[in-house]
Design a protein around this nucleic acid. Sequence first.
DNA 1: CCATTTGCTGCACGGTGTGCAGTTCTAGCA
DNA 2: TGCTAGAACTGCACACCGTGCAGCAAATGG
Lengths: 247, 247
Amino acid sequence: MDDSGTAERRGGTRRARLRAETSAEIKSVALRLMAEGGPDAITLRAIAREMGMTAGAIYGYYATRDDLITTLIRDVYGSLADTVEAARDAVPAQDTAARLLAWAEAFRGWALANPEGFRLVYGDPVPGYQVPEGGAAPEAERRACAGIIGLVAAAWNHTEPLEPHVTWDPSDFDPHLADAAADGLPDLPPAALALGLRLWGRMHGLVSLEVYGHLRTQTRAPDKVYRAEMLALVTSLGLDAPDAAPR
Amino acid sequence: MDDSGTAERRGGTRRARLRAETSAEIKSVALRLMAEGGPDAITLRAIAREMGMTAGAIYGYYATRDDLITTLIRDVYGSLADTVEAARDAVPAQDTAARLLAWAEAFRGWALANPEGFRLVYGDPVPGYQVPEGGAAPEAERRACAGIIGLVAAAWNHTEPLEPHVTWDPSDFDPHLADAAADGLPDLPPAALALGLRLWGRMHGLVSLEVYGHLRTQTRAPDKVYRAEMLALVTSLGLDAPDAAPR
DNA sequence: CCATTTGCTGCACGGTGTGCAGTTCTAGCA
DNA sequence: TGCTAGAACTGCACACCGTGCAGCAAATGG
């Protein structure tokens, strides 16, 4: 059925292909289980049961349960980064305020649509999982940070005069942070990096409270609260905030 | 040694006292285990082992493991509320900006000193734990919210003109929220409640990112970032921010 | 002094992650 | 085409976990 002899030339041998498919199926089953029953539902035995295998068989694909979780985090964080970047890029590049709002709304929307994914990425992912050194998904996290900092950079001319004069040192930040954000932007001052992280925290705060159920006990309109905060954020950057109900 | 007959009149019989002590010891051992080995270390068997008992014995004090966790959350959240309130009250009542900053710094300080407690309260507390309906510690959470909203109320005269005009409905918020904050404050407009929640989120965001290890991979000075954000927050309320380095 | 209540043990059940000996199947060579 | 090395998988074991329950011992209270 297949050219076993020369198969290695065009994308790996049949064995390797089957292996990759099984590995991908493990991940997809794990994600499905997580979506259905929460992060606690990710158990090797459940995955194996679903696939008609034994738990031990998974150890042929992932050295340990935490390795599997780390891979899942990488994938999920990547999908988050894709989502917010797509939302941003659906808005004309000139309208920085709208791009920032689109990013922020997409972030909250993704988090509420994938609460398990949000917990996986930003919280205690799963019983007993230990985040590996250097973070679980450094690449996607840098993408997210770079995206926000890029928006800050686009607004920086308006924003800089409004910022309090705190003296920053470039060494206060991860070197990759400035590099990733500086796509065409010659040299962004460290204060802008700090502002980017602050914006990140500002978006993360309300969304995190909401995902973990702390906000809904206090208000019935978390969306309005979040939107008001994001409008205030845009204003604080010196940008013109659109009207309250743009949609 | 004690008057067993009339003991019930002054604080419970000897049996009840011993029972209360054992119950308290269970909690303290659980907290110690959590501080040493993370939230995952809170297992009934480990607690019992530490106390020279059997796991089953704990069921005489707490109906289920989740009940114990809920009690722990209540205690820990209460200690957080105590800490931030004390820090706020150590500052003269007139200086609202300084009181807010003290609150914010105490919040971050507590979170970094008790990361497990922070996870317990604001994150997935422990493997498989389900937050009971209405939240695990509604009383302490209301205290925390009321504290922030009280600070907003104290600043409201300065702040109101700066706020964007979003129309809020009083029914957007939990009725208890306004009640708890309105200690002598006759009727706080809903916009101030919304602002309080937004401040809560703004403090929570950076601290949460830092506790879960997302901030340190991007910056070496999370304290500076947080402080800058809090100074900007104070300014955005229309208050005079103190100098950058008050201590 | 005795009956009752209470606290606890010992054990069982089903669940978990993790290894390892042994078996089955398949890929690739002769 | 047949054969063999090795990959993939099973079955089982171990040590944990939360949770119940029968039974026992001690403290309590009349």
